[in-house]
């Protein structure tokens, strides 16, 4: 690639901190940034925060998509739900067509989108549906990557949602993309059990014996380096993590909290299993902070940097795709 990577940034829920964080971005020397959202909203939010109007000649531009109704910081309006989804769709399809090299998403508010009568369980699922893909949600921090076997569903529905084929598929995607996107030659993956003490030989639940162990064995037969299932409270200790490139957790709160409290650095959400590169912040819309200037842009910065890194890697296979 001779030109700089073009990164689409969806500006997220207009009443949340997404627009604040986006207009506060500085131009990057190694990428061209395109904010996707309502231009007057973004310029107005910049003015409100006391920032200079966005200078679109300096490596940051806006691709305008119009709001359905004026947005007020902190106040949700379901009539803008379709707008929010439009920004995501535009970025994703733009990545597919080659207009963009990667997309980064600012937070959206799931509740208000559903209130508008649109079933929506998250960016990951929405983008995957556009490409008819099986997504794998991965959170990456400096030294630890955690993938999820199940994502945004009620915890009571998780045991029934875990099956042999989905675990094998997830492990395969994880393995392949650790190689192709992160340049890890022979990824080592640890797998969590579902139950306390990983089921303790069936005394505390049978999913390990009936589903998870057979799935791991299938993946191992295909040559993947997988260890588990391990009790999650044993697995997430330095002793085990030091020899791992990634962890597969069985459900959302088993894997994600660890990254947030354990000082692994800024966590970035990446979706594996897509034909495009997509990263995201790891926080929500923080409506109470919108327009206040107090929102922390660290996660968006980290997501942006990782998107640039992955976009560059995708264009220079010699430095990464060891396994392909």
């Amino acid at each position: 690639m001779t030109a700089l990577p073009r990164i689409a940034i969806t500006t997220g829920e207009p009443a949340g901190i997404g627009p604040d964080l986006c207009v506060a971005l500085s131009a990057m020397p190694n990428a061209e940034l395109v904010l996707i959202g309502d231009e007057p909203l973004l310029q107005e939010r910049a003015r409100h925060l006391g920032l200079d109007p966005l200078d679109t000649s300096a490596g940051i531009s806006i691709q305008h998509i119009g709001l359905a109704a004026p947005a007020t910081a902190g106040t949700l309006d379901s009539s803008n739900a379709a707008y929010v989804l439009d920004t995501i769709r535009t970025a994703a399809l733009g990545c597919q067509s080659g207009d963009f090299d990667a997309m980064v998403t600012a937070p959206v508010h799931k509740g208000i989108i559903n209130d508008a009568g649109i079933a929506f369980s998250g960016h990951t699922e929405f983008i995957a549906e556009l490409f008819d893909a099986k997504p794998v949600m991965v959170l990456a921090a400096d030294t630890l990557r955690v993938a999820l076997a199940t994502t945004h569903l009620p915890l009571s529905a998780v045991p029934a949602a875990i099956n042999h084929d989905s675990i094998v598929d997830t492990l395969t995607t994880l393995h392949e993309e650790l190689i192709s996107r992160f340049g890890i030659a022979a990824p080592r993956i640890l797998v969590c059990g579902l139950n306390p003490h990983a089921g303790e030989s069936g005394h505390l639940g049978r999913e390990e014996i009936d589903t998870i162990i057979p799935a791991i064995e299938t993946a191992q037969r295909r040559g993947l380096n997988i260890t588990g299932p391990l009790p999650a409270d044993t697995l997430f200790t330095p002793h085990h993590l030091k020899d791992a490139d990634a962890v597969l957790a069985m459900f959302h709160d088993q894997g994600l909290p660890v990254l947030k409290y354990a000082g692994f650095g800024n966590a970035v959400n990446i979706t594996f299993g897509l034909p495009i590169i997509r990263t995201s912040v790891d926080h929500g819309t923080a409506l109470d902070l919108a327009g206040s200037g107090r929102a922390n842009g660290g996660s968006l910065q980290a997501a942006l940097q990782l998107a640039v890194q992955l976009a560059n890697a995708a264009h220079s296979p010699s430095t990464t795709a060891t396994g392909r």
Binding site: P196, H197, A232, F236, D253, Q254, P257, V258, Y261
Partner: peptide
């Protein structure tokens, strides 16, 4: 179980 144990062990 794991909701507290993972955090407190780490």
């Amino acid at each position: 179980h794991d909701q507290g144990q993972i955090a407190i062990k780490l």
